[in-house]
Amino acid sequence: MTRRFLFVLGSSRDDGNTELLARAAAEQLAEDVEQQWIDLSDHLLPDFEDLRHDSDHVRPTEGNVGLLFDATLAATDIVIASPLYWYSLSGQAKRYLDYWSGWLRTPGADFKGTLAGRTLWGVTALAHEEFEVADPLIGTLHHSAAYMGMRFGGVLLGNGSKPGDVLGDTEALARAKTFFAQEAPLARFPYETP
Rank of each mutant, 00 (worst) to 15 (best):
M1D: 14
T2I: 09
T2K: 12
R3H: 13
L6Y: 01
F7E: 01
V8R: 00
V8C: 03
L9V: 10
S11T: 15
S12C: 12
S12G: 15
R13Y: 13
D14C: 05
G16Q: 07
N17R: 10
L20E: 11
L21I: 10
R23Y: 11
R23C: 13
R23M: 15
E31Q: 15
E31I: 04
E31Y: 08
Q36L: 10
Q36V: 15
W37G: 00
W37T: 15
I38E: 06
L40R: 05
S41T: 06
S41A: 11
D42R: 10
H43M: 02
L44R: 13
L44E: 12
P46T: 11
D47P: 03
E49I: 06
H53F: 09
S55Y: 05
H57K: 06
V58Y: 00
V58L: 04
R59V: 07
P60R: 13
T61I: 01
E62M: 01
E62P: 00
V65M: 02
G66M: 06
G66I: 00
G66S: 07
L68F: 03
T72I: 08
L73E: 08
I78S: 01
I78L: 15
I80K: 01
A81R: 07
Y87I: 01
L89E: 09
L89M: 14
S90H: 14
K94T: 13
R95Q: 13
L97Q: 02
D98C: 03
D98F: 02
D98N: 10
Y99V: 07
W100Q: 05
W100L: 03
G102A: 09
L104I: 04
L104K: 04
P107S: 02
G108E: 08
G108N: 10
G108V: 14
A109T: 07
D110R: 08
G113E: 11
L115A: 14
L115Y: 11
A116L: 03
A116E: 13
A116F: 02
A116S: 15
G117M: 01
T119V: 10
T119Y: 03
W121T: 03
T124Q: 10
L126R: 14
A127G: 15
A127N: 15
E129G: 14
E132M: 15
D135E: 15
P136E: 08
P136A: 05
P136T: 04
I138E: 04
L141V: 05
S144C: 14
A146L: 06
Y147P: 04
V155Q: 02
G158M: 09
G158W: 14
N159L: 07
N159G: 09
S161W: 13
S161Q: 15
K162V: 11
P163V: 01
P163L: 01
G164H: 10
V166K: 10
D169S: 09
D169K: 14
T170S: 12
E171G: 06
A172E: 05
L173G: 06
A174V: 04
R175Q: 13
R175A: 03
A176P: 00
K177I: 07
K177V: 11
T178G: 03
F180H: 00
A181V: 02
A181G: 07
A181K: 10
Q182F: 03
Q182E: 07
E183H: 06
P185H: 02
L186C: 03
L186P: 00
L186G: 02
R188C: 12
F189A: 12
E192G: 06
E192V: 09
